[in-house]
Design a protein around this nucleic acid. Structure first.
Length: 294
DNA sequence: ACAGGCTCCTGCAGGC
DNA sequence: TGCCTGCAGGAGCCTG
C-alpha cells in the first residue's frame, strides 16, 4: 500500500520521465469512484498542457501543469525543454492530482502496450508515450485544480519530513485518541499510513494504544525522530528497489522494506525476542512489541 | 468539536 | 476442485 516513501519514489520516477512532456489527449474510464473532479472537466482542464514538474504532497502525486497549447500535435517529441538556468521557469497554472489509494499504480508505457484490467485513465503525451492510471480497488482519486481558483495544493495536514519537533509535539496536544490513530489522521500529519505508523512507534518505544495527548514531550520528540528515520530509510530503499515501478512492473519492491513489527505477528522481536503482538486499532491491524513498547 | 465506526472496492487466502 | 467467507486498508461520511 503506497504511503509517503512509496509515493515519493513514484513521484520522482514520473517526474524524471514526464517533465517537459505535454498532455495531448486524455481518456477516462466509466467508473465514477476515481474522479474527485468529473472526468469531462479533467480532460478539458489538462489536455494541451505542459507538464512542468511532478512532486509528492502527503500521499498525493501532484503534476504541475503549465500553459495550454491550443493545437494538438501528437506523434512527435515535445519541443519544450525542462527549464534551464537561463530561461525562467514557466508559471504553473493548474494541477492534476493523483491519489493511489490502496492499489493505484501509475505506468508510463507505449500506446501499444497491453491495457491492464482496471485502467481508469490514459493520457496521450506529445512524446508518443502514455501515462496510465490503474487501480483495481478504486480507492484512488484523480483531481483537477486550477491555481487561480484554489491556490497550490498543500495537502490536508502537516508534512512529516519537514515539520519541526516542536510543531510535531503540538499536533497531539489535548488529543484524546490513541497515538496510532492520530498518526493515521491525515489532517494532522499527512503521508503516514499503517506500516510507518507501526514501525515508527516501535522504534520510539511507544505503545500504539497510548492516548496521544498524554504522551510526554520527550516521547513525542523521540517519535518525531523515529518517524523521520523510518521514512528516510524507506525512501532510500524504495528508490533503489522500485526504480522501474512506473515503467510496468507494478508493486514489486514495496514489501522488501525492513519491517521490524509490521506483519511480524508471533515472530520474535528483533530487539528482545518477545513475540510481536497484533491488535485491532482504529480498524487497522496494529503490530507492536509488548516489552519494548511502553 | 471531536472521536469512533461504517462503507466503499477487488483480490487473495483459508476452510470445508 | 470449487465455492464461500473473511480480511486487507485510505479516507469520506455519518453518528453519538
Amino acid at each position: 500500500m503506497p504511503e509517503l516513501p512509496e509515493v515519493e519514489t513514484i513521484a520522482r520516477g514520473v517526474d524524471l520521465r514526464l517533465r517537459g512532456d505535454r498532455i495531448v489527449e486524455a481518456w477516462f474510464g466509466s467508473h465514477s469512484e476515481p474522479f474527485k473532479t468529473p472526468p469531462a472537466q479533467q480532460a478539458e482542464g489538462i489536455e494541451g498542457r505542459l507538464i512542468l514538474a511532478v512532486k509528492r504532497v502527503g500521499k498525493h502525486i501532484v503534476c504541475e501543469l503549465g500553459e495550454r497549447l491550443i493545437q494538438k500535435t501528437p506523434g512527435g517529441r515535445a519541443p519544450e525543454e525542462a527549464p534551464s538556468a537561463e530561461t525562467p521557469a514557466p508559471a504553473a497554472e493548474a494541477e492534476w492530482i493523483v491519489h493511489l489509494g490502496m492499489t493505484g499504480r501509475l505506468l508510463v508505457t507505449t500506446p501499444e502496450g497491453p491495457v491492464a484490467a482496471h485502467t481508469h485513465a490514459r493520457l496521450t503525451l506529445a512524446s508518443g508515450r502514455e501515462l496510465r492510471f490503474v487501480d483495481p480497488r478504486r480507492f484512488g482519486r484523480l483531481e483537477y485544480r486550477e491555481l487561480k481558483t484554489n491556490g497550490a495544493f498543500a495537502g490536508p495536514g502537516a508534512e512529516p519530513t519537514t515539520i519541526s519537533p516542536e510543531a510535531f509535539a503540538q499536533l497531539f496536544r489535548g488529543r484524546r485518541l490513541a497515538i496510532k490513530a492520530a498518526l493515521l489522521n491525515q489532517t494532522l500529519l499527512h503521508g503516514v499510513g499503517n506500516i510507518y505508523a507501526d514501525e515508527s512507534l516501535f522504534r520510539a518505544g511507544i505503545r500504539p494504544r497510548r492516548m496521544a495527548g498524554r504522551l510526554r514531550r520527550a516521547e513525542l520528540f523521540r517519535l518525531h525522530t523515529s518517524l523521520l528515520e523510518v521514512l528516510r530509510h524507506a525512501i532510500s530503499l524504495g528508490g533503489s528497489s522500485v526504480s522501474d515501478y512506473v515503467d510496468a512492473d507494478g508493486v514489486r519492491g514495496f514489501f522488501q522494506l525492513e519491517h521490524r513489527v509490521y506483519l511480524r505477528t508471533g515472530q520474535p522481536c528483533l530487539v528482545c525476542g518477545t513475540p510481536i503482538r497484533r491488535i485491532l486499532l482504529a480498524g487497522r491491524g496494529t503490530h507492536y512489541c509488548p516489552v519494548c513498547q511502553k
